[in-house]
């Protein structure tokens, strides 16, 4: 079992490298301003400044921000899962005219830099009278090429005889998709949901531009409050960043359970 031990050693070494910045962020969160600003890599604070937590919360109405963020992320995540599974399935398994053109156009939406699409989309939001609403925060992000593409690949990877077998049982596409195909690619569905959640959760510029009042703002906007004109309050920024990252880590921790079980094996047996 020396090979197994070696795998663990290498993985753990890698883990140290990947966690170090995160750890640094956590400890910086409880340093004094001067300590946090000085560019040394002293990990531990001289004295733990627990009051930073309170100061962080005083800087912005984070409770409102968190509530909004979760609401928006939940809507976007569920919508993206639906649009990605349905569209991904259509592109992978159905024959219809313009399929390649449509898929090309879907991919094309990934190819324009954000800076360029910002203004036309804002004008659109304004014409629809969605400024400062949840609709502006969610609807434009309810489908994305990345997720559709990922689901298409997942469905294409499924053995074709699965569908034929289902047809024999008198099962149409929709029921096949809902009862056979989607459960089989559950790891990919979870991945799509995870990245949809992260994408929505981490967006900053768009929410800042389409909202005005505190009641519609999200946590990432809260993180910008610590950057003043004469510099950044690193300790508070890191404190807030750590708080903001926690839910994403929790979501990932919960989601990754679904990568562990191979559902395809179960599908073949069942």
């Amino acid at each position: 079992m020396t090979r197994k031990a070696l795998v663990y050693v290498v993985l753990s070494a890698g883990a140290v490298v990947t966690t170090f910045p995160f750890l640094w962020m956590l400890t910086t969160a409880f340093k004094t301003y001067a300590e946090a600003a000085s560019p040394t890599v002293d990990l531990w604070p001289e004295v733990w400044q627990w009051q930073n937590l309170g100061e962080t919360f005083r800087a912005a109405p984070f409770a409102t921000y968190f509530a909004n963020t979760f609401l928006v992320a939940a809507i976007v995540t569920s919508a993206v899962v639906v649009t990605a599974v349905t569209a991904g399935y259509a592109f992978a398994r159905l024959e219809f005219p313009l399929r390649r053109v449509l898929f090309g156009l879907v991919l094309a939406t990934m190819m324009v830099p954000f800076e360029v699409i910002l203004i036309p989309n804002f004008v659109l939001i304004h014409r629809l009278d969605w400024y400062n609403t949840y609709a502006a925060l969610t609807i434009p992000w309810c489908a994305n090429a990345f997720s559709i593409f990922l689901m298409r690949q997942a469905f294409m990877g499924l053995p074709g005889d699965f569908f034929d077998a289902a047809r024999v049982d008198g099962c149409g596409h929709l029921r096949f998709l809902a009862y056979v195909a989607a459960p089989l690619v559950k790891p990919m569905v979870v991945t799509v949901a995870l990245f949809a959640f992260l994408g929505s959760y981490n967006s900053l510029i768009w929410p800042l531009i389409v909202t005005g009042t505190e009641s519609r703002r999200v946590v990432q906007v809260g993180l910008t409050m610590f950057s003043g004109e004469a510099g950044v309050q690193f300790n508070l920024l890191m404190c807030a960043s750590a708080l903001v990252i926690l839910p994403t880590v929790a979501v990932y921790f919960a989601a990754q359970r679904h990568f562990l079980e191979s559902s395809l094996g179960a599908g073949i047996k069942g």
Binding site: A79, V82, T83, A84, T86, A87, L102, L105, V106, A108, T109, V112, I117, P120, N121, L124, I139, P140, C142, A143, N144, A145, I148
Partner: peptide, 12 residues
């Protein structure tokens, strides 16, 4: 659903 969202906020 997907084409509507992507068409309006992506292709346009």
């Amino acid at each position: 659903p997907a084409v509507l969202v992507l068409g309006v906020f992506g292709i346009y």
